[in-house]
Structure formats: C-alpha cells, structure tokens
Design a protein around this nucleic acid. Structure first.
Lengths: 213, 213
DNA sequence: ATAAACACTGTTTTTTATAACAGTATATAA
DNA sequence: TTATATACTGTTATAAAAAACAGTGTTTAT
C-alpha cells in the first residue's frame, strides 16, 4: 500500500483527533474550515486519495460518512498503563525518549481520553485563570496540532509549557491564562518558532502533600 | 443518575452497535428507519431524554452529532483500591455507605496520601481562587476536623461542599475561595451546624473530555 | 382525580453536508 | 516533453439531516 503524502497525513491526523475528541468524524466542511481551503473539492479529492490508500472508508451520500480504520485508532493508543511524566526535553530527542521521563503516574489512560498520553509538571502561575496551578501535574495527549483556543503543550527550547493556542493566518499566538502575562506571538517565518507537542487533557493535583510525583 | 427506560435502552443499544460497526453514530433518520417511527420527533424526544440521563451528548445543529459516552470506568473494573466517588449523602447513613457511592475512581490511594479517601464532584465556582473548578473531582481524606485555614469537605444537609474552614472560639467560619461568595458563619449552639467530613487532598480534572466521572 | 412522564404521530422549514462539474499551478518521473 | 500525480480554486445543484412547531394516547405516581 502506498504511503500518505505529508498533506494527506496532516488531514488524516486531524480526522483521528477529531474522532477521538468528539466521538464522530468531522464533516468535509469541518475539515475544510480547519485547513482553510477555499473549495470543498480540496477536501473531497484528498479524502478520495486517503481512501484509495486504505486508511479510511467513505460512505457516499452520508453526512459525516468517514470511517476511520480501527487499526489506525488503536495504533495511537499506547499499551503501557502508566502515564510518563516528562521533564526537560533533550534537544533533538523525541518527547517520550527514556531520558526525558522523570517518573510514572500509575493511573488509567482511559480517564484522560486515551491515546498517547504524557504528563508535565506545571511551573509558574501562567495558567491560574484556567485553574492550573504551580505544582500541578498536567496530562497531555501527544499531537502536533490543537484547535484554536484550546490549551496546548508547547515546546519552547528544552521546556514544555502550557498555553492557549491561536493559529491565525501564518501567525501563532500563545496566550497565558493570567492577566499579568503578555501573549507571545510568532510568525511562521521566524526561526525559533515553538512547536505544539500535545493537547491539554486535564490535571492531577496532589500539591501540599509532599508527594513523590 | 436515573436509569434508562426499556425503550430508551433499546435506542441506546442500537446507537452503540451502529457506532461500533460504522465508526460514526447513526443519524436521527437512521434511528427512525430502524425503529419504524412515523415521525422524526419520536427520535428527537428520545435522544433528548437519553442525553438528560447522561449517556450521550448532543451537538446541536451538527449532522450525526451524537456523542456516545462509553462507560470508561466500568470497563476499567472496580477494585477496592479505587477511590469511591460520593454523591448525595443519605441522612443518617455513613458517608461511605454503598448507596451514596456514585462511581469508582481507579487510581492509587497512595497518590493522595493514603488513608480513608473518597471523592466528590465539585459543583459551582465557589473555590475557583484555589484552582478548584466546577466539574473537578476533589479527593478527600475522611476525618472530622481540619487545621484552621485548610480546605475541608463540609456536610450541609445532604450535600458535601468544599470550603476553607476556620474554627475560632466556638464559631465555625466557612470561607469560599471566590470574592463574590460571602462567608458562612455558624455558632456552636446552632442546631443546623455543618459537619466537617474530610480534608481536601487534591483534585483530578478530566473536564472537557465528556468523561463519566 | 389529576398531574407528570413517557412514547409516540404529522407537517414544515432551515441548516448542514455531499456531489458534480470545470478549471489552475506545480513538481516529478518516464 | 509529455504524461501523471498532487494540491488546490470556484460554482452550482442536490441530498441528508436537524429543528421547530402542534398535537394524541398511555401509563404511573400522587
């Protein structure tokens, strides 16, 4: 079977995420909105190609009739029971490389929606307005995009931080949930642009207990 | 949570099967076809009722916008290691009586300091300033006193709520962590005085995931 | 006896989503 | 250089699905 092109993979990823978050697949128009296509046919032709490569099944004439092949979905879910807590992320290494893992959080992944999950220690008060405090452990699902306005884990240098992410016409805006923090804005052209590494799924707070986490 | 009626259960079963077989939920018309309803409204009203009972989530205006909530918790099994989530507390019954237990949170007690733990659904915004949001699951250690200024679970009537507790010279002051909420003050003599039932240990937040917790 | 919840019928309107057409521009390989 | 595949724009038509009314019986609890 032929492999997906980069663009096709992006679209496929989006559909997988959407399905997991919503319980049903995106409509062609929702895909179009997300990628900003001017024409509905852009989506149609992409879907046809992805379908030909066997990763989805299209049900003609049905609204939202995109069936994601289950193999793809289960691939995304990791079999390990515990959620790894990731510390500083060594440059060039994948996020979940062993040397980045600080600890393991022994709670069921299903609680946080399943998928490829990891956790981060929250440092600082930049997200207090979202109820995320210094010392909390944030649960993140690994993915390279988030919906506009969602909270994402963003890699800035070696550290991952949580910010509300807005991607608009070539510029990336990272908004802290704290009135005293200014937004960070990056242009697509800039060399040192941050990378979205996951989507905020929730937190576990054991603060004040001197816990082992 | 109220139980489904026989008819509602039939319809819910159909949706679960359809979702499993097709990867996306049925449309209202497909449900109608299957059951042979003469009116589309038959489906609509059933869905509304099933949604009210929490087994599905309806996305208004979206084709096929039925989100089935899989009972993640029951799939995960219930061991005695799990932390029980307590709902309304029947008068006179001990807090952890079986009829008070809504669900089980399958995470290790050691994470929250061990001891006799239970959990509460947080309702309302009275503790936002402490980073405790509506919908969070608060972990409580059962005990009948807390240190001055600590956050405690307090039984007011049938419901347990979180408040910062101050006990000074015969009067009990319950302070919400929200500037718009007034403190509650009780004298020891008052008949309807609230009872401290535990100490706040932390939270688990899975909000926005449509989880069953 | 009377409400309240349940399980529907019947009709019309509006919104959402897919389909079908005809094109353009670019890279890559034969 | 000539296909061939990819990655789209742009327009219009049509089907699918949801929503918004106003109703009718029936059971169940008070």
């Amino acid at each position: 079977m032929k492999e997906l092109t980069a663009r096709q993979a992006e679209i496929h990823d989006f559909m997988v995420c959407w399905q997991r978050d919503n319980g049903f697949p995106p409509s062609q128009e929702e895909i179009r909105d997300h990628f900003g296509f001017a024409s509905p046919n852009a989506v149609r032709s992409h879907l046809a190609l992805i379908a030909k490569k066997g990763l989805i099944c299209l049900n003609a004439g049905k609204a939202r009739g995109i069936q994601l092949k289950t193999s793809t979905l289960s691939e995304m879910g990791s079999s390990d029971k515990s959620i790894p807590i990731v510390g500083t992320i060594a440059a060039g290494e994948p996020i979940l490389a062993e040397q980045n893992i600080e600890n393991l959080l022994p709670i069921p992944r299903a609680l946080f929606g399943g998928g490829e999950l990891f956790a981060l220690h929250v440092k600082g008060d930049s997200m207090v307005q979202a109820g995320i405090l210094n010392g909390d452990v944030a649960i993140i699902r690994k993915q390279s995009h988030v919906e506009n306005g969602e909270i994402g884990a963003v890699l800035l240098g070696q550290d991952a931080t949580l910010k509300r992410v807005f991607l608009t016409s070539g510029s990336l805006r990272l908004k802290a949930e704290n009135p005293t923090c200014d937004d960070l804005v990056y242009n697509e052209s800039s060399i040192e642009s941050p990378r979205v590494i996951g989507r905020y799924q929730g937190i576990v707070r054991t603060s004040g207990l001197g816990s082992v986490l």
